[in-house]
Every structure is written in C-alpha cells, then in structure tokens.
Computed example of a mutant assay.
Amino acid sequence: MPLQEHAFADVADVRSRLEAAGYLADHAIATTVFLADRLRKPLLVEGPAGVGKTELAKALAAATDAELIRLQCYEGLDEARALYEWNYKKQLLRIQAGRNDESWDETHDDIFSEEFLLARPLLAAIRRNDPTVLLIDETDKADVEVEGLLLEVLSDFQVTIPEFGTIVASRRPFVVLTSNATRELSEALKRRCLYL
C-alpha cells in the first residue's frame, strides 16, 4: 500500500480545522485524533448517547474534505449488510439469458464479476481512492461475530471475496468506531484502536 499524506500537520491543526467544521475539540480529543492520523489506527470513541461521538466523525470528514461512509451497527447485522453481497436477481436473469448459448464455466465466471457485486459500507470505504472517513457507529450494538469481521478488515484493510478475489485498499480510510458501552467490546478490537 503506498504511503499517503497525513490529514493533519499537528494537534493545533486538528483543533482549528475541527472548529472550522463546527466541532469544539479539547486538547485530549485533538491529540488523540492527531495520533490516530499519524499512526493510521482506528479511533474508538466511547461514551453515553448524545455526547458527540458521531459528530466527531462527521466533523473529521468535513475538516479533511473526505467522504463520510457510515456503517450503523445493530443486533443481527451480518456480513451481507456490512461488507458485500451479490445481486442475486440480476445473476438469475443472466443465467437464464445465457442458458443455451454458453457453457456453465463461462456463465459462472460472468455472474461473479464486478457487475453483480453490491458493495456495502466496509467494502465501499476500502475501495475508495479519495479521502474517506469510515464511521462504524454504535459498534457495541452489533453481535460479537461482527467484531471478528471488523478485526479482519481493520487489521489489513483488505477484503477477500471467495468468488472474486482479494481487494486491498489503495488508500486507507480514517476509521472512527463509536460505542455507548452497552456491552464490553473485545480486547482484540480495543488493541487495534486508539481509545478516546
């Protein structure tokens, strides 16, 4: 993965740019954001509802001229809603259209191509070449299995799709995870993040 420029010059730059985006950050917040940017680590922001965790991610996107991609976590969230899924209806139509003309191998290779892939927030953020802030909101509301998926994505910033191959981020998104602390997040996930 090629090196990319850092979003912020120093802690004072973080404070002034967040303020310009409408977010008043104290020294601790600005320092943690600066370190997350420099170390290219996800930022885990924990606290009760309504204290501005999501607003921090929105302000970061505005301050860095980045697109905000949001994964809203909830109980029952699965890989298909977080990462990717196949457009099954379109695949079925393609199979029916090519039923008599082509061999199964040609049809199989065609239906598992870019045209039929539906990118969900995690894959969309990894595939972007432009500055991106990935907000994984209310991480504690998702099932523990989703944390395993996040560990895989956030450790290497790549996604392996069995039928398609491995997609590696050409530009790492700035990742912000929020938690209301309704349940304890795994130590493995916490170790991969800077904590605020």
Rank of each mutant, 00 (worst) to 15 (best):
V11T: 08
V11I: 14
V11N: 03
A12I: 06
D13F: 00
R15N: 08
R15D: 03
S16Y: 09
R17A: 00
A20C: 01
A21E: 03
G22H: 09
L24C: 06
A25F: 06
D26E: 10
D26W: 04
A28H: 13
A30Y: 02
A30F: 01
A30N: 11
V33T: 02
L35W: 08
L35C: 10
A36H: 03
D37N: 08
D37K: 01
R38A: 03
L39K: 05
L39G: 09
L39I: 04
K41A: 10
K41D: 10
P42N: 01
L43C: 05
L43F: 00
L44Y: 02
L44W: 02
G47K: 08
P48M: 10
P48H: 08
A49S: 13
A49H: 07
G50F: 05
G52H: 06
K53G: 13
T54Q: 04
E55L: 14
L56C: 05
L56F: 00
L56E: 03
L56G: 07
A59S: 07
L60A: 01
L60H: 01
L60F: 01
L60R: 00
A62E: 13
T64C: 04
T64L: 02
D65A: 04
A66Y: 00
A66N: 00
E67R: 07
I69V: 15
I69L: 08
I69N: 09
R70Y: 06
R70I: 11
R70P: 11
Q72N: 12
C73S: 09
C73R: 03
C73D: 06
L77E: 08
D78Q: 14
D78W: 10
E79C: 06
A80C: 12
A80I: 09
A82V: 07
E85N: 15
Q91H: 09
L92N: 14
L93F: 15
I95A: 15
Q96C: 10
Q96D: 12
Q96Y: 11
A97E: 15
A97S: 15
D101W: 06
D101L: 15
D101K: 14
E102F: 12
E102M: 14
D105F: 05
E106Q: 13
E106T: 13
E106I: 13
D109M: 14
D109C: 07
D109S: 14
I111P: 14
F112C: 12
S113V: 07
E114I: 07
F116G: 07
F116Y: 15
F116P: 04
L117A: 08
A119W: 07
A119G: 05
R120Y: 02
R120C: 03
L123H: 04
A124M: 10
A124R: 13
I126P: 01
I126D: 05
R127V: 02
N129D: 12
D130N: 05
T132S: 03
T132P: 00
V133Y: 00
L134T: 03
L134K: 01
L135M: 02
I136L: 03
I136H: 01
I136Y: 00
D137L: 02
E138D: 12
A142W: 09
V144W: 05
E145D: 15
E145I: 13
E147W: 00
E147N: 04
L149P: 04
L151H: 07
L151A: 02
